[in-house]
């Protein structure tokens, strides 16, 4: 394989993994701005290690391994800031998260089906929150409802969606 081919494959893998990496990092940090930073750092480290990239080997464990390291050092460096989990718990969670995030693509088709089953209003709500990334306050203002009402509505529709997706994926009961 030529170096160019390898680079191309690497970029393709990396592109395909952006959502997963972001999901993984955000799950542990719970903060979009920091998650973006850490994903960028992870990209940078991966890029620097392109020599270690082997197209014959699974990309995900490699990328997650590096992301985990970046997350843990980020938590350590910003110990005083408000975080969802501490470093010890992040370590505990990283394994299961890696496994689940790796199958992120499995969630897509059922999720699309389930999104299709929502009524117009709920779909618009999800769209505003997750696609346009509007804050709850912004959504409340534009639809003329209180923050609390929007929060409750979002929680409900999300629960409904998650339930629908778990059924489709035939997830085991916990």
């Amino acid at each position: 394989m030529t170096a160019e081919n390898k680079t191309e494959q690497f970029v393709q893998h990396l592109t395909e993994h952006q959502t997963r990496l972001y999901g993984y990092v955000y799950s542990l940090l719970g903060n979009h701005s920091r998650a973006s930073d850490v994903v960028q750092e992870t990209n940078l480290v991966l890029w620097r290690k392109i020599d270690e990239f082997d197209p014959g080997k699974p990309f995900t464990p490699w990328a997650f391994g590096i992301a985990r390291y970046q997350v843990l050092s980020n938590i350590r460096d910003h110990g005083r800031e408000r975080l969802l989990v501490d470093s010890e718990l992040a370590e505990q969670l990283s394994g299961v998260l890696e496994i689940e995030m790796e199958r992120l693509d499995d969630y897509r088709v059922p999720l699309r089906t389930c999104l299709g089953r929502l009524d117009e209003e709920n779909r618009a709500l999800i769209h505003r929150r997750y696609f346009r990334e509007q804050s709850i306050a912004d959504i409340a203002e534009s639809v003329g409802r209180t923050n609390g009402a929007v929060k409750v509505a979002l929680t409900r529709v999300r629960q409904k969606l998650f339930k629908c997706v778990s059924q489709q994926l035939k997830m085991s009961e916990l």
Binding site: G23, Y26, S27, E100, M101, R103, L111, L115, I126, V165
Partner: peptide, 11 residues
């Protein structure tokens, strides 16, 4: 969290 990540990219 995986569901949320999928939601963010599928929404």
């Amino acid at each position: 969290q995986t569901f949320h990540a999928a939601l963010r990219s599928e929404a």
